[in-house]
């Protein structure tokens, strides 16, 4: 079979949503995420310029690192002066900060929230425990590497990193966005099956659709 045909078949393949009860399956979407290419090179450069200056954080603290977000937004560090603002809903946010360790219960919510965010979307992994598990490396209840489950754009190491390092992380993210290197959305769509397999391996009570959008 030609590669083109395989792609068409893959595109037509619908998600099974096996975690849901049979009577509820019709209520949820069964489309796979697909790769979206930019319309025009120069338009994309302009949009990236604007995207780098308007970062909306999803207001969801996934671990102890979320405590660093309060001083980040208040008078001492004032991240809003760089165009970084909180957004209460995943539909509108475009930056997801994984604030430290992600327990098995949290990773389910992380996946749901990440998938509901509208691309282009960026992920900042905050703290050592998102990189290799940190002090929770042998815990039965936390995951060690976040980038097995969702694509990550920038890592901020430390335990806990101070707001200064988080701002440095944001500056790194801005540079990457402006250079057009943050393509987590398409990466997730391309390797969707791999990410799903990893997620399903650890989330035992999978009672949600396979792709939440």
């Amino acid at each position: 079979m030609k590669e083109k045909d395989i792609k068409i078949i893959e595109k037509e393949m619908k998600l099974a949503n096996e975690g849901l009860p049979e009577m509820e399956r019709d209520l949820f979407a069964d489309d796979r995420p697909s790769r979206i290419e930019p319309l025009n090179k120069y338009l994309e450069q302009f949009l990236n310029w604007a995207r780098a200056r308007s970062l909306w954080i999803l207001a969801y603290g996934t671990g102890c690192g979320a405590i660093e977000l309060r001083p980040l937004m208040t008078a001492r560090f004032d991240a809003f002066r760089y165009g970084i603002a909180g957004r209460p809903t995943p539909r509108q946010a475009n930056v997801f900060i994984i604030g430290g360790y992600a327990s098995l219960k949290t990773i389910k919510r992380i996946v749901r929230s990440y998938e509901q965010m509208q691309g282009p979307k960026y992920v900042i992994a905050l703290g050592s425990c998102t990189i290799n598990g940190g002090m929770y490396y042998d815990s039965y209840n936390t995951i060690n590497r976040i980038d097995y489950y969702i694509p990550v754009d920038i890592y901020v190491t430390g335990c806990m990193p101070r707001p200064e390092s988080l701002i440095a992380g944001f500056n790194g993210l801005k540079k990457k966005i402006q250079a057009g290197q943050c393509d987590g959305m398409n990466k997730y769509a391309d390797n969707f099956d791999w990410y799903k397999a990893n997620q399903k391996q650890i989330i035992k009570d999978w009672n949600m659709p396979d792709y939440n959008w």
Partner: peptide, 18 residues
């Protein structure tokens, strides 16, 4: 934020791919 921040926000929201 700079006073033109709302304009950047609007460009960013219109620039979403999905």
């Amino acid at each position: 934020p700079p006073v033109w921040q709302p304009i950047l926000d609007i460009i960013q929201t219109h620039g979403r791919k999905v």
